[in-house]
Design a protein around this nucleic acid. Structure first.
Length: 506
RNA sequence: GGUCCCAUCGUCUAGUGGCCUAGGACGCUGGCCUCUCACGCCGGUAACACGGGUUCGACCCCCGUUGGGACCGCCA
């Protein structure tokens, strides 16, 4: 039987290094065993999925040299490979589950569920669905259906018994069914949840090995139950350890740059990044630390992965990248790398209009806008606060800039301006007080080319990183303060939306 | 809080009962090379979380403790 593996990214944001990490290990496993590697897009979250995120993920993975054998863009024998195009399949299958009594309709409202959770939390009871709609009579169901009451479909998890998961790297993992929630399989919008779609697709796409992050272990019993309910063969599960922040928590963009685009824009080479990922929780038999994808594949052995999570260490990545830079390229070849990056007519010509009026000589150009071509920017932290401002307050202000920037779909100067105006309004400050800080955070200088254009050109992930860096310089925003700030921010925004009506988002 | 996973230098890791007075790499650091810097070379720093077993013998096996993490959404 051909080995078939897959990665299943969700197009809800910037391309994540974790996706590339899983991609690398899946790809290596497939290639090493002469198998096939599938890319499937899990876009069942109608609210958050966007086509531009999907193409961004494709581009980023390809940039890194992670190439799939079947996927939405190239097709394959088991398509479509985009879950939003498979809704009919899910509906057919959920029907089977309901007929078998393995799943049931639940008419509980989101409000009731929230209330229920709150109570459970207060009374320190285990949280989970209380099963109110588990045993509705035919008549009751009929009645709800007649009324067009919205409903979801839940998995009927047995009241007793043990689920044994065979994980290749961890031997047997056991879960008692009585502590597993009746998972929602189909949302009220008719779309499947991850759990349902994932199991159906993995089966239909003939996936033999599910290689995914450790974060999925707790939901695996639900998946096992689904396979059993359908009467399907269960694939082999291989849960890989997670990529971690320096503090040991799961890698997150709040604490570390996680976007592949950041690493590209910061000037890392794709092969170095890929190589570095291959060092995470893994070591080659010969202990060699620098290797090509082909090397990696040729002696790849999934049983060599170690189980502790790995902290993503920028310092070591930089060292590896430096080795590639000096060992793998002649000066001429390196020049090609520069032009493929940002030192090319296309990028530079976009810098010229914003500089023209500010030049006394041609030689003023590069020094004035070198921050657009720099990995990092260095400056005196005091420039962020001026003479009299409180570092904590400035940090919070910058944090709200990040909140607002997050909501932008199009990274263009006009939207950036609106975003900063909004932040200024929130703090009841003149826009100037916001932009003056941003100038420093972004360029490292108090005198710089136009801010919005600069941010647009720098790019979303580089901009984010620079702002995060400036917050860190100011001493960061503590957990409690962060939570409070978020609440205040959300509150202010919801009020704003009520007064302005919907659709005024920049 | 409940369930589950994990545990070797600050970080990435080697190690599958004797080869370990624990090896390599990043970082940090002393020196050499040198017009500066970088590269390169030589050296240093620093770890088996703890307590019980099992065994002639435990970093390696078992149990417990501690610590860390993940998950507990009509997100994936």
């Amino acid at each position: 039987m051909t080995i078939r593996v897959r990665i299943a990214p969700s197009p809800t944001g910037s391309p994540h290094v974790g996706t590339a990490y899983m991609g690398l290990f899946n790809l290596a496993f497939a290639r090493h065993h002469n198998g096939l590697f599938v890319l499937r897009v899990e876009d069942t979250d109608q609210g958050r999925s966007r086509p531009e995120y999907e193409s961004g993920i494709f581009r980023a993975l390809q940039w890194m040299g992670i190439q799939w054998d079947e996927g939405p863009d190239i097709g394959g024998p088991f398509g479509p490979y985009r879950q939003s195009e498979r809704t009919v399949i899910y509906r057919e299958h959920i029907r089977i589950l309901i007929d078998k009594g393995k799943a049931y309709r639940c008419f509980c409202t989101a409000d009731r569920l929230a209330e229920m959770r709150k109570l459970q939390h207060q009374n320190k009871l285990p949280e989970g669905y209380d099963g109110r709609c588990r045993n509705l009579s035919e008549a009751e169901i009929e009645n709800h259906l007649q009324n067009n009451d919205p409903f979801v479909i839940r998995l009927r998890v047995p009241d007793e018994g043990t689920c044994v998961i065979n994980d290749r790297l961890r031997s047997e993992i056991r879960y008692e069914y009585n502590q597993i929630d009746d998972q929602i399989l189909m949302k009220s919008d008719g779309y499947p949840t991850y759990h349902l779609a994932n199991v159906i697709d993995d089966h239909l796409m003939r996936i033999t090995h599910v290689i995914r992050g450790e974060e999925w272990v707790p939901s695996t019993p639900k998946h096992v139950l689904l396979y059993q309910s359908f009467g399907w063969e269960i694939p082999e599960f291989i849960h890989l350890p997670l990529l971690l922040n320096p503090d040991g928590s799961k890698l997150s963009k709040r604490k570390n740059p996680t976007s592949i685009d950041y690493y590209r824009d910061a000037g890392f080479l794709p092969e170095a990044l890929l190589n570095y990922l291959g060092l995470m929780s893994y070591s080659r038999p010969d202990q060699e630390e620098k290797f090509t994808l082909d090397d990696f594949v040729s002696d790849f052995d999934i049983d060599r992965v170690s189980l502790g999570g790995s902290i993503f260490d920028l310092k070591k990545l930089r060292w590896l990248n430096a080795r590639y830079l000096r060992e793998n390229y002649t000066p001429d070849q390196l020049w090609l790398k520069f032009t493929g990056w940002r030192i090319n007519p296309e990028f530079l010509s976009r810098m010229i209009p914003m500089m023209q009026n500010r030049l006394h000589t041609l030689g003023d150009f590069i020094p004035a806008c070198s921050f657009l071509l720099a990995t990092d920017v260095s400056y005196d932290t005091a420039l962020l606060t001026g003479h009299d401002k409180d570092p904590g307050e400035i940090a919070e202000m910058l944090q709200t800039v990040i909140f607002q920037l997050e909501t932008l779909t199009d990274w263009i100067p006009g939207n950036l301006q609106t975003a900063l105006e909004l932040v200024a309004a929130f703090w009841e400050l003149p826009i100037r007080d916001v932009t003056s800080v941003l100038f420093v955070a972004i360029s490292g200088m108090t005198v710089a080319p136009p801010l919005y254009e600069s941010m647009a050109l720098l790019g979303r992930d580089m901009t984010r990183r620079r702002i995060m860096d400036s917050i860190d310089r100011l001493g960061s925003v503590g957990r409690k303060k962060m939570k409070k700030l978020e609440e205040r921010w959300d509150m202010w925004n919801s009020v704003r939306h009520q007064t302005n009506g919907e659709g005024n988002q920049p």
